[in-house]
């Protein structure tokens, strides 16, 4: 039987905890759908609550938080999530904002069918099959939000963030953006690619934080920015 210590609340992010198992630190979120797993995550009981361990190798957001990135997520925040894929990271954010709402946009039908399954037991997840590069296509479903989280492997990553920011992010809201240098320019040096994207963003955002996601995710950077 392994020894569990914690949970201990994590900084500014609501419902995010650190749990130590046999002395090793893990990030975890309280399961909003107790008894249900979303992927092959490990489940731990601590202090009468069921927690789902968050795997930094699978989630860029988790890797970024481990690397010290912080953002003011509240339990009732409204989030626009671009590039939701099958919903592994979505499910952890869903745990963190039990009274909030996540508009989860994904363009590809196959992962959306997994996302739908996840959303069935999570009332705060609104799955949307749409192209994040065309924000006007989901105008009728998405409202002004407090956060935009974007993790899209497309060329114009900063451009997509800008477009969605203009349409949906409230003044003072936060953008959390995962940049993948390989899908912007596979030949250029990642550092230079990140510079270029950050510069485009700074037209409308004030960039707060940047971290590289090595070793968990190669050629990736996470960036947080305020909409001013």
């Amino acid at each position: 039987m392994s020894k569990v210590q914690g949970p201990e609340a994590h900084g500014k992010i609501s419902n995010l905890y650190a749990i130590w198992i046999d002395g090793r630190k893990h990030l975890a979120t309280p399961n909003l759908a107790p008894g249900k797993k979303v992927y092959d995550e490990r489940i731990v009981n601590a202090g009468g609550t069921e927690y789902r361990l968050w795997n930094p190798w699978r989630s860029k957001l988790c890797a970024a938080v481990l690397k010290g990135i912080n953002f003011p997520l509240e339990s009732d925040s409204r989030i626009l999530y671009l590039g939701a894929a099958t919903g592994t990271t979505v499910s952890h954010i869903s745990d963190m904002v039990p009274d909030g709402i996540i508009y989860a946009v994904e363009i590809s039908p196959r992962p959306v069918s997994n996302l739908i399954e996840t959303a069935r037991s999570r009332k705060n997840v609104i799955p949307i099959l749409a192209d994040a590069a065309r924000p006007s296509t989901y105008l009728g479903m998405v409202e002004t939000v407090d956060f935009i989280y974007q993790d899209i492997a497309q060329r114009d990553q900063a451009g997509i963030a800008l477009k969605n920011g203009r349409t949906y992010l409230r003044k003072g809201g936060t953008l959390v953006l995962a940049l993948k240098s390989q899908s912007i320019d596979s030949a250029a040096k990642p550092g230079r690619v990140f510079e270029g994207e950050a510069e485009k963003l700074s037209e409308e955002f004030r960039i707060r934080n940047r971290v590289r996601l090595e070793p968990h995710h190669k050629y990736h950077m996470m960036l947080t920015a305020d909409y001013v």
Partner: peptide, 21 residues
């Protein structure tokens, strides 16, 4: 509203997937 939107979004996405194949 949110719970109606939730149901609506689930249904819509399912139908769109069927059509997309």
């Amino acid at each position: 509203y949110r719970s109606k939107l939730h149901m609506f979004a689930l249904e819509l996405a399912e139908q769109q997937i069927k059509k997309a194949i």
